[in-house]
Design a protein around this nucleic acid. Structure first.
Lengths: 202, 202
DNA sequence: GTCTATATACAGATAGAC
DNA sequence: GTCTATCTGTATATAGAC
């Protein structure tokens, strides 16, 4: 019975480090706090992972992969452009609402500790860009550079998560109301993007 | 002649603190680095500003104000909706390209050091929201909640600045090419938003 | 593997001469 | 106002017993 219930020390450290690094960022995170969270002492952290840097590398490269959308399958399936768009936005916003700390953690790290970027493998995102370009060539959508369309789509999904505290402050929005806004955006973003790129019929 | 050339120590500290806090964030900033940048020693920092926290408060509240768009005049002028939108996006992207560190600094601070928020005065942003709602009521644009439209507009401007390192990595874009993309967006964002919210003629 | 105790470095902050 | 020297706390990291 213990086999299923037991969580290894290493696994507990990983989970604790994820929580603290994502919430506090690399500079703000404290090894002591990670140790407390994992219910061990600081010495154990170094026994398992050597240094704060090495532990961060582990967490960062894993989270980086999580954030890059896995659209490969969707693109290969023989479905409509509209469906791909809808699935993409739905999946992305769902993931973000479950991981609200993820975007700030990645963006902050890539700006202020770019050394950790070297520990991620190369991520050629050109597949989706090429697919979007094909949709333009096929006149499924208006002419628009794939990079712009991607920045638009991802920005419309991610920015409201990043800007939450600022937006709540400036527009004096309560927590529950903001959650409501985020939920509405799955429909809204799809609609907004479709209107912006659809080809007028006549 | 010295009157014009002289920059007070206090002013030099402010400038130095801006540079370091914006680049490194509160947790990552070092008082020693600020002192070096201002070409003084650490003791002087404390003589002028007391503590790291007090210095940060000064910088944060000033930068927070800078980021909130000053649209009051534009809204009161008797111009078209299209012009307000164009001026808003133009002004915002211009400001962001001159201050690339600003969005991350503010967003990071508001998430991870929300205590500094209390040092900003209340910023009711409801003026612009109300104006947008009026445009909907007047059937100048499609029905859309002002909060959504604002999140969309600001997100389309700000996100590409925040996501720059990630986007460059994933799509393997050179620095000059990315700057080119950012420049193009002044036109592109206006066009994208207008298409998304305009009312079809027939 | 896990712990306590400690080494080492460096941060923010202060004392006091000038 | 400005400096050097120093205090104090705390961070990462290690030594060594069990």
């Amino acid at each position: 019975m213990e086999i299923e219930e037991h969580i290894s020390t290493e696994e507990r450290i990983i989970k604790a480090a994820e929580k603290i690094f994502l919430r506090e960022g690399y500079a703000g995170a404290r090894m002591q706090e990670i140790a407390n969270e994992a219910k061990i002492n600081k010495a154990m952290l170094h026994y398992y992972f050597g240094s704060k840097k090495e532990l961060m590398e582990k967490i960062f490269s894993a989270k980086f992969k999580e954030f890059i959308p896995k659209v490969t399958e969707a693109l290969q399936s023989e479905t409509t452009f509209e469906n791909v768009l809808r699935v993409y936005i739905d999946t992305y916003i769902d993931m973000l609402m479950r991981n609200p700390y993820l975007p700030l953690f990645l963006i902050d790290t890539m700006h202020r500790n770019p050394e950790f970027l070297s520990f991620t493998q190369n991520f050629p995102g050109k597949l989706f860009a090429a697919w979007l370009q094909k949709q333009v060539d096929l006149k499924k959508i208006r002419p628009i550079k794939p990079h712009h369309l991607l920045l638009n789509m991802i920005g419309l999904c991610v920015f409201p998560i990043l800007a939450k505290p600022m937006f709540q402050k400036v527009f004096q929005i309560e927590e529950t109301d903001y959650q409501q806004i985020l939920t509405e955006r799955k429909e809204m973003v799809y609609d907004f993007v479709m209107r912006a790129i659809k080809i007028d019929d006549e």
